[in-house]
Structure formats: C-alpha cells, structure tokens
C-alpha cells in the first residue's frame, strides 16, 4: 500500500513538471496532502490510538484544507496570472526530472543494501525534495516558489516515514508549524510586494534591499 501511494506521489511530481498553471500546482499540493495523510493513517488501522491520530488530523487540516485555500486566496486577491512562467523549456525540465528520478531510484537501491529502508517511499520522497528545488530554481513566480517549497516539505515527510517507522510527533508537528509560518510569511511578503511593485516575480526581490 505504501508503494502504491508512493507511485501516486511520483506521478503527481511528473504532473507538476508538465503543467503550466498555478491552479494545477495547488491541486497537486492538495492531492499530495491527501496521499501523505492516508500514509500516516494506515498504521493506525490495525492498532488505533487517539494520541497517534493527531498528526494525520493536523496534516489534513493544514495541508489539504488550509494551505491550498490560503494560496488560492492569495492568487485571487492579488490577481496573479495563471501561467507559471518557467525559465527553461518545459520539455527540458521534464527530461531533467526523469533523469533525476532515475538516478535517485538507483542510488536508493544501492543505499538500501547497506541500511534498512523502504526503497520506494524513500526514493519518492527524495525525488520530491529534488523536484521542489528544481521548481524553485526554474520558475519565476514567487507563488510557484511557495508551492515548490511545499513540495519539498512533502518530500521530507515521505522521506521521514521511510527512514524510521514514525518520527517523534513533536518534530513532525514542528515541521508542520514551520511550513505554516513560511506560507503565511510568503503571503504577507507577496502582499507587500504587490503593493510596492507591479507583478510578483523574483526578479523584483533583488530590489527589495530591506
């Protein structure tokens, strides 16, 4: 089951690398949130505990409901255009993503020989991290960068589930809070930028010296 979910997760990554709409990014984030929630719920199906269900529940609220809604709101409020404005050809980006994923899978296969880990979720999480970084590298819009960052964060989550059976809850909650704050800050920053400049491109950030 974990593997199937990881495959879906990877597919969502591929979709991210071909789509050219900001809306689609938000949808993918939502889907990824659902996938991660299911992944976290699975262990509790066999032995239920109220304590353990807190993380999935928080996850659901923050990642699936709150953050996407907030980003959508920012998009609406600031009237951001729908195109993501890539800096390289989408085709090349996709090829890069494929190559990265292949390499990561092979590397994790090699790694799994020496350390006990679940290859598929591990590699999927790792790929998500890489692709999150790519998205930040090769896209112009700030709002897309936020999405890229969230993808990266999702990757870390998946990555974490494969390394240890469960991370200490505090850490997970901490990360969630972290993400929440970052998104919030981005939103505020975007609002500021929009009131200062026309447009929301990273190029403007360079001029924002303090």
């Amino acid at each position: 089951m974990e593997n199937v979910l990881s495959i879906l997760f990877c597919l969502s990554l591929f979709y991210l690398s071909v789509t050219s709409r900001v809306k689609a990014y938000v949808t993918v984030l939502r889907v990824q949130g659902i996938i991660l929630t299911i992944l976290l719920v699975i262990p509790f199906l066999s032995h239920f505990s109220v304590y353990g269900i807190i993380i999935p529940a928080t996850m659901l609220i923050v990642k699936v409901i709150y953050i996407p809604r907030y980003i959508n709101k920012v998009i609406l409020d600031l009237d951001i255009k729908r195109r993501i404005e890539p800096t390289i050809q989408q085709m090349v980006f996709l090829a890069l993503v494929i190559a990265t994923i292949v390499i990561i899978f092979f590397a994790s296969q090699l790694l799994s020989k020496s350390t006990p880990l679940n290859v598929i979720p591990f590699a999927s999480g790792f790929s998500a991290i890489a692709i999150g970084i790519y998205i930040i590298m090769f896209r112009k819009k700030l709002i897309v960068h936020v999405c890229g960052f969230l993808v990266l964060e999702n990757g870390i989550f998946l990555f974490g589930t494969s390394v240890a059976f469960e991370l200490p809850m505090l850490i997970e909650l901490g990360t969630l809070l972290d993400v929440f704050v970052v998104v919030f800050l981005m939103g505020i920053a975007l609002n500021r930028i929009s009131s200062t400049f026309e447009g929301f491109e990273v190029a403007h950030l360079g001029r924002l010296k303090d």
Partner: peptide
C-alpha cells in the same frame, strides 16, 4: 513508463 518500471523492479 520509466517510473513504473523502476518502482516495479525495486519492489
């Protein structure tokens, strides 16, 4: 296709 094959062979 690539992803599919990778995942299948590694599982």
């Amino acid at each position: 296709g690539i992803l599919n094959l990778l995942i299948y062979t590694f599982t």
